[in-house]
Design a protein around this nucleic acid. Structure first.
Lengths: 132, 132
DNA sequence: GTGGGTGGTTACCCTGGGGTGAGCGAGCAG
DNA sequence: CTGCTCGCTCACCCCAGGGTAACCACCCAC
C-alpha cells in the first residue's frame, strides 16, 4: 500500500481508510471476523482460503496496530489466540457494506455468495449512502 | 490489483469493488472527478498532486474499462479530452462516502475539509497507528 | 525559430507486497 | 517414539504496479 506516503499524508478520509484496508486480504479478514467474532488463527486461515500464514499474521498485526482488531492471547499449552473486531472495526465493516453492495451491483462475476445468506454482514443498521 | 485472481474470483462484492479502486490513486481520481465533472487531463493531474502522467492515464483507462468514468475526446486542434463519472461512478463515489467518514473519524492526520489538505497536510506527519 | 501548452505513448527501472517453505516449542493422540 | 496441531517467525524470491523520462503531433505566443 502506501509505498511512500503521498506528499503530505492523507488528502481525505477515503485514502486514510484505503491505507488501512489496502492489503490484498484485509477486507476478507475483516469480513470473516465480522461474521465470526472471537475467531482463532487457524480458523481464520480456513475462512480466508488462499491466504498464507505469513500474510495472515502480518495483516492481523497491521489491523491490530490500526485499532481494528483486538488480539487476545491465552497462555495455554496449545497456544490459543482469539481475534475480535473492535468498535472501530465493526464500524469499518459497516462502512464497507455500501461498497460491497456497489460491487455486487456493478461488477460482473460476483457470486450471490452463500455466506451472504448467513446474514451476519448485514445485521447491523448499516449506513446506506448509496443504496439506489 | 488482484495480481492473480483468487481461486474462484471474487468472494464478495467488497473485494470486487476493491479490485476497481485498488490503484494507488484511484479514489483520489474518483473524488476529484466527483467534485469537478467534465475535468480535463491536465486539470486532473493538477488536482491529484504527485501522480504521474503515465499512472493517471493508466488509471483513467482502467476506470473507463470498468465503466466508472466516461471519456469524451474532442477532435480539436489542441487536443481536448474530458472525463466524467458515469452513473456507476457516481454511485461508487457515494458508496465510498461512509468509508471516508470512517477514515475521518478513526484515523489521525486526516484533514476535516479536503481543501485544508492541500496546504496543511504537510504538518500532518506520521500517519501511523491509532488504537482501540 | 524557440518555447510552452495540449493529451497522451513507449521504454526502462525499482521497490515492496506478497508467495513459498521451513522451523520452533510444547502437548497429546496413536 | 512418531507425527500432528497451534500460532506464529524467519529467510528467500518473484513479479507487477508504479516512478522516471523521453518522445509525438499540433498550435500559439514571443
Amino acid at each position: 500500500m502506501a509505498t511512500v506516503p503521498r506528499p503530505g499524508a492523507y488528502v481525505c478520509g477515503i485514502d486514510a481508510a484505503m491505507d488501512v484496508i489496502g492489503g490484498k486480504w484485509k477486507v476478507l479478514i475483516l469480513w470473516a471476523l465480522g461474521e465470526r467474532p472471537g475467531c482463532r488463527f487457524g480458523e481464520l486461515r480456513r475462512l480466508v482460503p488462499g491466504i498464507t500464514e505469513k500474510v495472515l499474521a502480518a495483516h492481523l498485526r497491521e489491523l491490530e496496530a490500526d485499532g481494528i482488531v483486538h488480539r487476545e492471547a491465552y497462555d495455554e499449552v496449545p497456544p490459543r489466540v482469539e481475534y475480535t473486531l473492535t468498535g472501530a472495526g465493526r464500524q469499518l465493516n459497516e462502512a464497507l457494506a455500501p461498497l460491497g453492495a456497489w460491487g455486487r451491483a456493478h461488477v460482473r462475476g460476483v457470486p450471490a455468495h452463500p455466506a451472504e445468506a448467513r446474514g451476519a454482514a448485514a445485521r447491523a443498521a448499516a449506513p446506506r449512502a448509496a443504496e439506489a
